[in-house]
Design a protein around this nucleic acid. Structure first.
Length: 413
RNA sequence: GUGAGCGUAGCUCAGUAGGUUAGAGCACAAGGUUGUGGCCCUUGUGGUCGUGGGUUCGAGUCCCAUCGCUCACCCCA
């Protein structure tokens, strides 16, 4: 038997209904906030991700679905959405200083990782990017949007963690100070020793106990950020507090994508096991320029839809039900019922029937299983009397009505 | 890439120190009322016990390999 590929999943039945509703809420809230959808390709040139996410990040080093296409070009199935958005803006020259761009995307992403709870190889993200604004109002805009969205979806048990990584200048100072501190500590894990050279800030994010211990008393980035960065953060905190959006400062949030500067944040939810981050993002003012495009400041975040779906329970969507189920037993009945069903469906009435030769009892059982509100019975007795039987399944009551009432059956309920 | 746990019916799982034709619940189907659903009762359909090899008179059960799934590490949404 041929099965689906590891880490790739079919979504169907009740779960598909949950996804549909979740996506509807997302689109509605995004649109309310003035964000417009952009539908981006799944395949991009590999270089786009190497240069944006960063060559030494895990995503680029070992998690990308990269292959050489028939034109001998290295292409990659997108592992995230932000790089594509920036590529898109520059390619179509959409940037103007007068106007902020507010874009959103929603779709599948691909990373070659070992699957586990809340982590698949094909997963789905909904993300927003707010471009062209250097001020903390940009962060506030996307974070208040986040808060409203998660509230509407019904994710109650959540915490917003915020940090500031500083601008490139103050980060350099901090980096040196951090390295100096770590020089005197030889007990770091293997990975962290490697990170000293590749990406020292990631050491702050290490989960090893001994590293955590060392990091506890390490210098804090927030003590090193420059006056501008500090002002930026203070203003953002002020805006969040003013609008009742609760948050915690977490000086250890680093993020695994290289393009972030200044503000970074993560939203964690309870009940997800170890993959508790449902949404994360930050500011990436230099990404566009670094990719050879406009100087375009930006803030954005992405939400992992699988993880959000895991938090939703059965009550998020209600069961489908039918308006009418039709029961007949012979050609005389069929000639009346089938054209009628067609007409009702054209009017948007949800109906079904069972053309098999099974018994009335069996057909009623089927109607019950399909949660039909009403059943129309057109058997020998009815046809001989020029009537049909309309049964209310919930109340268990039924009436005989003249056949011509079938024309506008939906008005009888 | 690393580690641990688990693979028995469509689903959730039992299966005792290896011992006849491998079980239950749910789901599905038929009947209990020659035309009335849900609840209940009866009956039925459905399994190469993940796959391959080994030990044994005999393997779902023990051993080895392999594949798959899950969770965790790592990393991330």
């Amino acid at each position: 038997m041929i099965t689906s590929v590891r880490g790739f999943k079919d979504i169907y039945g009740k779960e598909a209904k949950i996804w549909k509703k979740l996506e509807n809420i997302i689109r509605e809230v995004f649109s309310t906030w003035g964000f417009e959808e952009v539908r981006l390709p799944i395949l991009e040139k590999t270089e786009l991700f190497q240069r944006s996410i960063g060559d030494t990040t895990d995503i680029v080093e070992k998690e990308m679905y990269t292959f050489i296409d028939k034109g001998n070009e290295s292409v990659t199935m997108r592992p995230e959405g932000t790089a594509s958005v920036i590529r898109f803006i520059n390619e179509h020259k959409l940037y103007t200083l007068e106007k902020n761009l507010k874009l959103y995307y929603l779709g599948p992403m691909f990373r070659y990782e070992r699957p586990q709870k809340g982590r698949l190889r094909q997963f789905h993200q909904a993300g927003v990017e707010f471009l062209g604004d250097l001020t903390p109002y940009a962060e506030f805009e996307v974070l208040s949007l986040m808060d409203c969205l998660l509230e509407k979806v019904g994710i109650k048990d959540r915490i917003l963690y915020i940090n500031n990584l500083g601008c490139p200048d103050c980060r350099k100072t901090y980096r040196n100070s951090l390295l100096k501190y770590l020089e005197n500590n030889q007990d770091l894990c293997e990975d962290c020793n490697r990170r000293k050279i590749t990406n020292p800030l990631r050491i702050l994010d290490c989960k090893q106990e001994k590293c955590k211990e060392i990091i506890k008393s390490a210098p804090k980035i927030l003590d090193f950020i420059c006056v501008d960065c500090k002002k930026h953060m203070t203003k953002l905190k002020e805006l969040l507090t003013l609008n009742n959006i609760s948050y915690e400062i977490d000086p250890f949030i680093v993020r695994g994508l290289d393009y972030y500067i200044k503000t970074v944040f993560e939203v964690h939810a309870k009940g997800l096991g170890s993959q508790s981050a449902i949404l994360a993002g930050g500011r990436y003012d230099n990404l566009s320029k670094d990719l050879g495009g406009y100087d375009l400041p930006a803030v954005g975040w992405a939400m992992g839809l699988e993880r959000v779906v895991l938090l939703l329970d059965e009550t998020f969507v209600e069961d489908d039900s039918l308006d009418f189920f039709f029961i007949y037993f012979d050609d005389r009945g069929e000639k009346i019922i089938l054209p009628l069903i067609n007409n009702l469906r054209k009017k948007g009435v949800k109906v079904s029937y069972d053309p098999s030769k099974s018994s009335l009892k069996s057909k009623l059982r089927k109607a019950d299983k399909l949660k039909s509100k009403y059943v129309v019975i057109l058997g020998d007795n009815e046809i001989n009397n020029g009537t049909f039987t309309l049964k209310n399944m919930e109340k268990g009551e039924q009436f005989a009505l003249p056949l011509d009432k079938l024309e506008n059956l939906e008005k009888e309920i």
